[in-house]
Amino acid sequence: MNFPLAVVKEVKQVAENSDKEDFIIGYRITPEEIHGENVGYRLGDAQQLIDRIVDFKIDYVHVSLFTKYDAESVGTNMPIGKTIKETVGDRAAVMIIAGIFSADDALDALNHGDLVAIGRSALIDPEFTLKIKEDRSDEIVLSIKKDRVDSLALPAGLIEWYTSEGVMLPPLPGIEYLEELKK
């Protein structure tokens, strides 16, 4: 834990010593990351680190999950986001991201944290949040569509990254239409 704690401490000091008063400081973590049988860390390890990090009075903890926002840790019946929220309490906000593709997903994800981050859903439908705000959630595009690929204006590098072999990200719904662009 020494390295991440030292980084958070330094970031807090730089923010406090600046002439700006509106810094928002967060810490993004994947709360479980296992490679092979014993390499990596489990949720309990992440909880210990997060507990120490929020003592620095950061504004939020960004919980990045590989599967879905309501995923459970191995051997538990408690969603990871809720577990982190219990660890953090009211000391910082908890931001959840993973597998949020609809307004219902976003609303349900708020049961697991205080804030919802969207990434892939905004790539698929750049008006995702606007449609929710304007009560048009039934118009949210949930998957990349063949007839909309060009209008998404995704950079070639991003398309290459998402469609490359061995990418360690969950696939975008409709990824096959991006793969056609590479041909």
Rank of each mutant, 00 (worst) to 15 (best):
D105C: 12
Y162K: 01
L181C: 12
D135R: 15
I132D: 12
L178R: 01
P171S: 07
L152V: 04
P173K: 09
A156L: 07
R148N: 07
L142C: 12
S164Q: 14
G119K: 11
G166Q: 03
K131C: 05
R148C: 00
K146H: 10
L123K: 04
I159L: 00
G119N: 14
D105V: 11
D108W: 03
M168P: 00
I144R: 02
E179K: 15
E160I: 02
L158F: 14
R148Q: 13
L172G: 06
L154A: 10
I118T: 15
M168E: 12
V116H: 10
L142D: 00
E139C: 10
I140P: 07
D105T: 12
R136D: 06
L115S: 06
R148F: 01
P126Q: 08
G166V: 06
S143M: 06
A106Y: 08
V149K: 08
R136K: 15
S121E: 05
R120W: 05
P126D: 06
A106F: 07
I132N: 07
P173I: 03
I175Y: 00
D135T: 13
E139I: 01
L115Q: 09
E127M: 12
L152S: 09
A109H: 04
L152T: 08
A153Y: 07
E165C: 05
I175E: 09
D104Q: 14
G174V: 06
A153W: 00
Y177W: 14
G119A: 15
A122I: 10
H112S: 03
I132V: 13
A117Q: 01
A109K: 03
S102N: 11
P155Q: 11
L142G: 10
E176T: 03
Y177C: 00
R120T: 11
S151D: 13
I124N: 03
D135N: 15
P171E: 12
E179C: 02
M168C: 02
L158T: 05
A117C: 09
P173E: 09
D104S: 11
Y162Q: 02
A156F: 04
D108F: 02
W161V: 01
V149P: 03
I140S: 04
G113W: 09
A117G: 14
G174N: 12
V149W: 04
D108T: 10
K131N: 09
A117P: 09
T163D: 05
D104G: 05
L169M: 07
S151L: 03
N111G: 09
F128H: 13
E179R: 14
A103V: 11
G157I: 04
I132R: 11
L154V: 07
S151F: 05
R120K: 15
K146N: 13
S164V: 02
L130Q: 10
D125W: 13
E127L: 10
T163L: 01
P171T: 03
E179V: 10
D114Q: 12
T163W: 01
A106G: 12
E176S: 03
I140E: 09
I124E: 13
I124M: 03
S164A: 15
L181D: 01
